[in-house]
Simulated assay, not measured.
Amino acid sequence: MGFSPDSFYIKTLGLTNTDDAEIWEYATTNDFVIVSKDSDFHQRSLLYGHPPKFIYLRVGNCSTSKIVQVLQDEIDIISQFGDREAESILVLS
């Protein structure tokens, strides 16, 4: 189960065990937003800006269903973030 019909897990895109730089490029090319708990993507976003935009999940060790719940709870903030051209990082906890 994904967050929305337009969301994809890395593994469903065939990008499991793929270098972060390749995932970053794939997201840029396909106009995706990266959602991750990985601080490497956070650092990459600070260094390069966007595209792609990055949603940094600071939720610690938790289940996928908890992550989906956090995203659903913040859907209005996420939507506003997507519409703002100047913003490249959104931190959710």
Rank of each mutant, 00 (worst) to 15 (best):
M1G: 10
F3E: 02
F3C: 04
S4P: 02
P5M: 05
P5F: 03
P5Y: 02
P5K: 08
D6P: 00
F8C: 09
F8R: 12
Y9G: 08
I10A: 07
I10L: 15
K11N: 13
K11Q: 13
K11W: 11
K11S: 14
T12M: 09
T12G: 02
G14C: 06
G14W: 06
L15Q: 09
L15S: 09
T16D: 10
N17R: 14
T18P: 03
D19E: 15
D19Q: 14
D19S: 13
D20E: 13
D20T: 10
D20N: 15
D20C: 12
A21T: 12
A21Q: 14
E22H: 11
I23T: 04
I23P: 05
I23M: 05
E25Y: 03
E25V: 01
Y26S: 02
Y26R: 02
A27T: 04
T29C: 01
T29D: 06
T29I: 07
T29K: 14
N30W: 02
D31P: 00
V33D: 05
I34L: 15
S36V: 06
S36P: 11
K37A: 12
K37I: 00
K37Q: 15
D38M: 11
D38P: 11
S39N: 12
F41P: 08
F41H: 07
F41Q: 07
H42L: 15
H42A: 10
Q43H: 13
R44S: 13
S45T: 06
L46I: 06
L46G: 05
L46S: 06
L46W: 02
L46K: 15
L47Q: 15
L47Y: 07
L47T: 14
L47R: 12
Y48H: 14
Y48L: 15
G49H: 03
H50G: 10
H50T: 03
P51C: 00
P51T: 03
P52F: 10
P52N: 09
P52A: 07
P52Y: 10
K53W: 05
F54S: 03
F54V: 13
I55D: 09
I55R: 10
Y56E: 08
Y56G: 07
L57C: 09
L57Y: 06
R58L: 11
R58N: 14
V59G: 11
N61T: 10
N61G: 08
N61W: 03
C62D: 02
S63Q: 08
S63F: 00
T64F: 05
T64Q: 06
T64A: 05
T64C: 00
T64H: 13
S65F: 08
S65Y: 05
S65D: 12
K66S: 12
I67V: 15
V68Y: 05
V68A: 02
V68G: 01
V70C: 08
Q72G: 08
Q72V: 04
D73V: 00
E74C: 12
E74V: 00
I75W: 08
I75F: 11
I75H: 13
D76N: 13
D76M: 04
D76R: 07
I78K: 06
I78D: 04
F81Q: 04
F81H: 04
G82N: 12
G82Y: 00
D83G: 08
R84I: 06
R84A: 01
E85N: 05
E85A: 09
A86T: 09
E87W: 00
S88L: 00
S88I: 00
L90P: 02
L90E: 04
V91Q: 12
V91N: 06
S93W: 07
